[in-house]
Design a protein around this nucleic acid. Structure first.
Lengths: 252, 252
DNA sequence: CTATCTTTTAGTAAATTTTACTATATGGTG
DNA sequence: CACCATATAGTAAAATTTACTAAAAGATAG
C-alpha cells in the first residue's frame, strides 16, 4: 500500500516507460487491476493425498481443469472472498483457509491484469461433500501424484502450496485436519507418509506422537480391518494450545 | 485467478450485495483495484536488528513514518515493482526480496481499494547506503525494539514479516545476508540472538555452526576489538547448495 | 615487560533423544 | 484352532545436545 501521492489535479509522477523519465499519470490509471483468489484444497483418502479441482465452464480455459477460483469484488475483503468463492463453486464452507502466495505476472491472465492470491485448505474428504456449482462444470478429487497440467498458472500455484504445506505440516499439528475426528496412529502415519513422501518407523513414530501428549486416547478401536484393530485417538486442540503457550512446539 | 466468465455482452453474474441474489455486473467493474508493494527491509548494526523506514512526503499519512512502498504499474510484474519502488524511494538495489503476505482489507487505504504485497529483505547496513529519494522525505534505520506506530497497516506488516523471518532464519542460512562478507562467530551469534530474542551457549553455538561445514575459515581475525580477536569466516553459499541437495538442512 | 582482563577456542562428560531392532499381544480369517 | 497381519511394548546402541571446565591469545594498564 502507500503510494497515492496525488498532485492537486489527481496526477501521479511515474516512469511508466522504461526510459527512466517521469510522466504525469492520471491517478485512476493505477486502479485497473483485477484481483482473484485460487483455492488449493487438499484432501486425504485411501492413503493418498488429493486435490480438489473443477472443470471450468467459462472462458478463458473453458473445459480445462483448474483450481476453484474467481474474481474478488471491489467491496470485499480478500479472505471473505476466498470463502465465498469456494462456496460458490463447490458448496463447501466452514473450513479454515490460509494464504500461500501472490501471483502477479503481467501476462498471467488473458482477460486483463489480474493478480491472484493462493489459499490452501486441508479437509477430511468424508466430512465435506463438494459438488460443482456456479460456473464450475464438474468437480474432481484428483490424486496429487497424477496431476495433469492445469489452466492458467495453477500448476505452479499447486506446487508452491504443496511445498509450503510440507514444511508447515512438520511444525504445526495441521495434518489432523485431513483425518476424521477419530483415527488410528497408523492412519496418521500413512497420512504423513503420503504428504511428505517419506516413510517412518512405526514404533518410533508412535512413540514420538504419543510423547507429545496432544492426543486423547479413546475407548474405541478400528473396525472393518482384517487384522488386530488399532486404538483410536482424537486430536486435543486445547491441550496443544496450552502446551504451545508453554514453549512446546510440534515437530514431526 | 480464473474468473472472467464473461457473458456475450461482457457482463458477469455476481452477488455484489449480501442479499444472496445474482446481478449482471459489467466485467470492468471488477478491475478497480490498485496494487501496491511495501518493503520490510531489515538491517543489523551494533548488535541490534533495525528496520528501514521513510517519512512520507505525500498524502495520505503525509509526515508519518512508514515502510517504503508504492503503487504497482498496471504493466509491471509485482516482483519487478518491489525492486523498482525500493530503489525509487531509497536508492538501494541489487538485493534479494521475497514475498511475505498480502493485505486485502477493503478499508485499508483511504484513497481507494488498494491491496498490498509485503516483501522482506535482509541487508548489511554497511554495504548499502540508502538515502531518501522520490517522494520519501526522510529515511531512518529504526531499532526494531523501539518501533513506533506506523502509517496504514504497516505495523501489522512488520510484525508479520518479523514472525515469518524468525521461523525462516532458523531453517535457512539467510542470516548471513545481514552481516558483512567476513564475520566472526560471535557476530553471527549476536545476530541470531537479536533476531530471535534468545541466547545461546557460546561454545555450543560455535560447534553447531562449524559442524555444518558451510563456512569458509579465513586467514584473518577481527581488529579493533579490545580483547583476543576472533577468527573471521565467510558463508560458503555454493557449499551449502551442494550439501542441501544431498539432504542436509540448516537448522539453527 | 608483565600482570590482568576479556574473549576465543578446545575439550569432555553427563543427559537426552533418536534409531534400530526384538518380542509379545491381539483380533481377523479360513 | 492355526495362521496371518498389524498393534503395542520394550530395550540397547548410537547420536546429539547440554552444561561446564580449562587453556590460549590478544589488548591494556602499570
Amino acid at each position: 500500500m502507500s503510494g497515492s501521492r496525488k498532485t492537486e489535479e489527481n496526477f501521479y509522477n511515474a516512469h511508466f516507460n522504461n526510459d527512466g523519465a517521469y510522466y504525469k499519470i492520471p491517478f485512476s490509471r493505477f486502479f485497473q487491476f483485477g484481483v482473484s483468489v485460487d483455492c488449493v484444497v487438499f484432501g486425504y483418502e485411501d492413503s493418498k493425498l488429493k486435490l480438489l479441482l473443477i472443470k471450468r465452464g467459462a472462458e478463458p480455459y473453458k473445459g480445462d481443469w483448474a483450481l476453484p477460483g474467481d474474481l474478488v469484488y471491489p467491496n470485499e475483503d480478500i479472505e471473505v472472498a476466498a470463502l465465498r468463492i469456494l462456496k460458490d463453486l463447490t458448496g463447501i464452507e466452514n473450513l479454515f483457509m490460509e494464504q500461500t502466495m501472490v501471483y502477479g505476472k503481467v501476462d498471467r491472465h488473458p482477460a486483463g491484469r489480474v493478480i491472484t492470491n493462493g489459499y490452501y485448505s486441508l479437509i477430511d474428504i468424508a466430512q465435506y461433500n463438494p459438488t460443482a456449482a456456479g460456473w464450475a462444470q464438474e468437480l474432481f478429487w484428483v490424486d496429487l501424484k497424477s496431476l495433469q497440467h492445469l489452466a492458467f498458472d495453477h500448476t505452479q500455484i499447486v506446487a508452491d502450496a504443496l511445498k509450503i504445506l510440507q514444511e508447515k505440516v512438520r511444525r504445526q499439528p495441521i495434518g489432523f485436519e485431513l483425518l476424521p475426528q477419530k483415527f488410528a496412529l497408523s492412519d496418521l502415519q500413512s497420512l504423513y507418509e503420503a504428504f511428505l513422501s517419506e516413510t517412518f518407523d512405526k514404533a518410533n513414530f508412535r512413540k514420538k506422537i504419543l510423547s507429545m501428549k496432544i492426543l486423547n486416547e479413546l475407548d474405541e478401536v478400528q473396525n472393518n480391518v482384517s487384522h488386530r484393530p488399532g486404538r483410536l485417538y482424537s486430536f486435543n486442540a486445547s491441550r496443544y494450545q496450552q502446551l504451545s503457550s508453554k514453549g512446546f512446539s510440534f515437530e514431526l
